[in-house]
Design a protein around this nucleic acid. Structure first.
Length: 303
DNA sequence: AACCAGGCTGCGC
DNA sequence: GCGCAGCATGGT
């Protein structure tokens, strides 16, 4: 059984910047940040494992806190963390691009080593982005917490409870009134049940979506689901499939950041936005993520 | 108390 | 194809 192992840190990687993002004050119910570590429960070879990650010299050190972890399990967690923290990416081309534009060049220093934090589970990502539609993030995190605490699998470690995001089969059996009782709007409830059904009936999965050729076809497949529009589809493609060119168009946070960086003057200036992003081919999603990050720095909070 | 929030659907043109 | 109202619900 594996108790701990090391993952070497790549260049231009800041664990603290990533932790800062994870812990930016919304109280996500699917992991915990404390003492410069992140603690999370995931399914490893079919059974729940709680692990903690912290920096150790030039590595990330993973401690398995709860559950059994074989050598294969270690490889699985390694892969999971590599994807979650996007450890395989070389950020230097992105930083070269940022440095060419004085409006955003400061990010290279201020957010140095920040990785685009993913959502590895496609079902979770879809539910989360539907929950987040048109409501403020505080409320969105509250809704997610209610759903997860009511229907997610609990994993106990010491005196704490860790949650796994509920399986599609579990969510597909929730009634609309039950979701409404948790303050889901009727449409959000309908959309989430439909997504759950698509997974249960094997019409949709990360494998199926990944196997589709090209960004636009994947986007179309997602938008075919009722309740999924361009914003949701692109958000999911960015966070789960890591499509580098994905931009969640229309996102209010993105628009706010573009205005505060004086890249656009008004939110409707669509051509200006695509002109701006055309300088960042292959790094659009990273640019979006860094612009979102900027919203948490006092200077750029003004609208 | 109006206006906004990490949008989407359905309708009319 | 494009624009716009209507939608629910909580936060400021």
């Amino acid at each position: 059984m594996i108790n701990s192992f090391l993952i070497p840190k790549p260049p231009l990687f800041s664990f603290q910047e990533c932790l800062w993002f994870l812990d930016r004050g919304y109280g996500d119910c699917l992991f915990r940040v404390k003492n410069r570590q992140v603690l999370k429960a995931i399914l490893v070879e079919g059974s729940p494992v709680v692990f903690a990650v912290h920096e150790y010299e030039n590595n990330l050190k993973v401690n398995v806190l709860e559950g059994n972890c074989s050598k294969n399990g270690e490889a699985f967690i390694w892969q999971y963390l590599t994807e979650w923290f996007d450890l395989g990416k070389d950020l230097s081309p992105f930083y070269n691009l940022l440095n060419q534009d004085l409006r955003v060049a400061y990010m290279v220093e201020n957010f140095n080593g920040l990785r685009l934090m993913g959502i590895e589970d496609l079902f979770e990502a879809l539910c989360w982005s539907i929950i987040g539609q048109q409501i403020n993030l505080n409320f969105a995190y509250k809704l997610k917490r209610k759903l997860v605490e009511a229907y997610g699998t609990k994993v106990f470690y010491e005196d704490e409870i860790f949650y796994l995001f509920p399986e599609p089969a579990v969510i597909s059996r929730i009634s609309i009134p039950d979701l409404k009782a948790m303050q889901f709007s009727e449409s959000k409830a309908t959309y989430i049940l439909e997504v759950a059904r698509a997974f249960v009936e094997n019409r949709l999965s990360k494998e199926i979506l990944t196997a589709l050729p090209g960004f636009e076809i994947r986007q179309k497949a997602l938008i075919a689901i009722k309740g999924v529009g361009v914003w949701t589809a692109n958000y999911v493609l960015m966070k789960t499939l890591r499509d580098a060119s994905s931009i969640p168009f229309g996102d209010v946070g993105l628009l706010k950041a573009l205005v505060s960086h004086q890249i656009i003057n008004e939110r409707k200036e669509v051509e200006k936005i695509s002109a701006f992003f055309s300088n960042y081919k292959g790094w659009e999603s990273y640019l979006v993520f860094y612009l979102w990050r900027s919203l948490s720095t006092p200077v750029f909070q003004a609208k």
